[in-house]
């Protein structure tokens, strides 16, 4: 039989009906004289038939609505439909209040912000953009149902150790269980000049709250609480030495200040 050379890949092609017609006669002649090989190929053909019999019924199943939606509208468009109005609102507020608004707020609140020389102006405008960054990070990550965080609360020790290492400072995830908020987990984000951290919490109703922690504050000055409204997101933020903290959520100011006070108190005691 060595005068007809048949390759294994031709036998496979024969199984799948993909053998060129020109070789068909030779392969069939080979199989006629090699019954064991013929039997092997029959088994392979049977595998093909059985695989189709097993999974073809999936073709007739109704397509789940979720998958129809994923095919019809790109995920990014769906996300940005939700996100754009908020971001635009946030940016508008930041533009108007970030300039004149901040001066006004400075006059109304802490005395040290009243007289704004060049350096102080910078210091004052820095926290405003800090709050906006925190609010945007909140708006981007908190609606994510499946992947809201990089590391989950089940690995809290690892999460805290990792973020501390990357921010080069000891970072804590405050425990807010007594206020009804459980830690979901956290992630690392890019800040103005390096990494910042975000911890995410949720309450029983699914309401999410994020704590944004930066170590980029060079002025090393402490401030009291500041409040910013970025579209639908309320933000409380404060600066504590090198650390900047911003707590963001779509909850009312009173509730948020309650949580912010608890976070502040815990961080002071550690």
């Amino acid at each position: 039989m060595s005068r007809i050379e048949i390759h294994e890949h031709e036998l496979q092609a024969y199984v799948d009906g993909l053998l060129p017609e020109s070789r068909r006669g030779e392969v069939e002649a080979y199989l006629a004289s090699h019954p064991r090989e013929a039997q092997r190929l029959q088994r392979y053909q049977q595998q093909n038939r059985e695989i189709r019999a097993l999974f073809d019924p999936v073709l007739d199943e109704p397509v789940p609505e979720q998958l129809r939606a994923a095919a019809l509208v790109p995920a990014t468009a769906r996300a940005s439909q939700r996100l754009w109005p908020r971001l635009v609102a946030g940016l508008l507020i930041a533009c108007f209040s970030g300039g004149a608004g901040w001066l006004l707020r400075g006059e109304l609140q802490p005395p040290r912000l009243v007289q704004l020389d060049g350096e102080q102006w910078q210091r004052a405008s820095q926290p405003a953009s800090f709050a906006r960054q925190a609010a945007i990070a909140h708006v981007v990550y908190s609606p994510d149902v499946r992947r809201p965080v990089e590391i989950g609360a089940d690995q809290e020790d690892q999460l805290v150790a990792w973020l501390s290492k990357r921010l080069n400072a000891k970072i804590q995830a405050p425990s807010l269980g007594s206020l009804g908020y459980e830690l979901i987990g956290g992630r690392l984000l890019p800040g103005n000049s390096g990494p910042v951290a975000q911890f995410m919490y949720h309450d029983g109703s699914g309401q999410r709250l994020t704590l944004y922690v930066s170590t980029e504050n060079n002025s090393n000055q402490n401030t009291g609480f500041h409040f910013a409204e970025e579209g639908p997101v309320n933000v409380f933020y404060w600066i504590d030495g090198p650390f900047g903290y911003a707590l963001s959520a779509g909850i009312d100011k009173g509730e948020l200040v309650r949580v912010a006070s608890a976070v502040y108190a815990q961080l002071q005691h550690k």
Binding site: F55, E61, V63
Partner: peptide
């Protein structure tokens, strides 16, 4: 509905069949 959406839609049953087997 865009042509791309329509093509994607028609691919879903076969994608599901393959994924189920995989």
């Amino acid at each position: 509905m865009s042509a791309d959406s329509e093509t994607l839609l028609t691919c879903i049953p076969r994608l599901r069949r393959y994924a189920r087997a995989l």
